[in-house]
């Protein structure tokens, strides 16, 4: 069952959202609505479901509605029309106390510019979500210390946010979000303010943490490489509408529109596509002396497969964890996928 579910969701910003939405549904243009009454259609007819434990990436350019989408999940923003459900409960219909419980225990958020409290130390920032729950300090301090340590900031407990580098600040933001042990982690472009090298470290750290924790992560980004690297599934937004939804491989192999294809032009395909996409499922008869010495797993990225097939003239066998042969990959198969027409 889906843990987060959007149904027929619209969000319009402006003085008269309902009226503007009616006009939009009647066929009015997005730009026309903006110029006529200052209305912005941030999200248009979004329906999608996020599964528990997945890293769900929402990707789009600025103004595509991705930040709005993530804020609907914890009701920092309310929908103009349609529903958002978290674990089956309609977030829009929650009472104040239900909403508070949702935010305190089930969902937490990481922000683009970190959103740290400059007047609290690293430890007190990490403990913020626990302090808000009115737990006594003695009850939560050990938890907060453990999370400071987990994100690699031991020794900085009493430092102030203005004394940290960008990467360290976002580690505080991540520890703060994890300290309340939520089911769902909302991450709004968390790494886009960081240097490329630091960004990569943070992505690695997130993947490592996710390996241990298995939270549901809704990750917003405008960086396609980041989306492909982290996402179990990716939703691409354009002008508030869903342009495509699928696994990185699905999107790369079959872009739904020219818009998506244009996005994908500079992607390192060898890193995203795997042997399972390239292989021939019905292996050709392998004659004597032609059997390949090497075998590879189906999830092996093509950039690893390429040197193998380059060395030998015969196809390489693709073998699953039980040793069963699933198919073969030849040099031509790999090249055909890496260099699309």
């Amino acid at each position: 069952m889906a843990i987060v579910e959007f149904t027929d969701l619209f969000k319009v910003f402006g003085p008269d959202p309902a009226g503007a939405l009616a006009r939009f549904r009647a066929g009015a243009d997005r730009d026309a609505l903006r110029e006529a009454g200052g209305h912005t259609v941030a999200l248009a007819d979004i329906s999608l479901a996020i599964a528990p434990g997945e890293i769900f990436v929402v990707m789009g350019l600025s103004g595509s509605g991705k930040s709005t989408l993530v804020r609907l999940i914890n009701r920092l923003i309310r929908p103009t029309s349609g529903q958002v459900r978290v674990a089956g409960a309609d977030v829009g219909a929650m009472t104040d106390s239900e909403l508070t419980a949702l935010r305190r225990h089930r969902i937490s958020m990481v922000f683009q510019h970190f959103g740290l409290m400059p007047h609290r130390t690293v430890l007190d920032n990490v403990a913020y979500g626990l302090a808000i729950q009115k737990q006594p300090r003695s009850a939560y301090e050990a938890t907060a210390r453990r999370w400071v340590e987990t994100v690699g900031l031991s020794g900085f407990e009493t430092a102030w946010p203005d004394e940290l580098s960008g990467g360290m600040r976002q580690r505080v933001g991540l520890a703060r979000a994890l300290a309340t042990d939520p089911d769902i982690l909302l991450m709004d472009e968390p790494f886009s303010a960081l240097d490329p090298l630091i960004r990569r470290d943070m992505q690695d750290q997130l993947l490592a943490l996710q390996g241990d924790l298995t939270k549901t992560i809704v990750f917003i980004t405008h960086d396609l490489d980041e989306a492909l690297r982290l996402g179990d599934r990716i939703a691409i937004l354009k002008d508030g509408a869903l342009a495509q939804l699928g696994t990185p491989e699905e999107i790369l192999l079959a872009p739904a529109s020219d818009y998506v294809a244009a996005f994908l032009r500079d992607v390192n395909r060898g890193r995203v596509l795997t042997a399972s996409s390239a292989m021939q499922r019905t292996p050709p008869q392998v004659g004597p002396g032609q059997s390949s010495a090497a075998s590879i797993a189906p999830e092996t990225p093509l950039e690893t497969v390429l040197p193998l097939v380059a060395e030998q003239d015969v196809p390489v066998a693709v073998v699953d964890a039980d040793g069963a042969v699933l198919g073969t990959v030849s040099r031509q198969d790999v090249i055909a996928l890496l260099v699309p027409k």
Binding site: L76, R104, S108, M109, Q112, F114, G115, Y128, I132
Partner: peptide, 24 residues
């Protein structure tokens, strides 16, 4: 963004006022 952070953790308006807005 700091205000949003406070709200996203379920702070009441009073907790946000006394814990974030007034100190800052």
């Amino acid at each position: 963004e700091v205000l949003e952070a406070s709200q996203s953790f379920g702070a009441s308006p009073r907790q946000t006022l006394l814990g974030v807005q007034l100190p800052l």
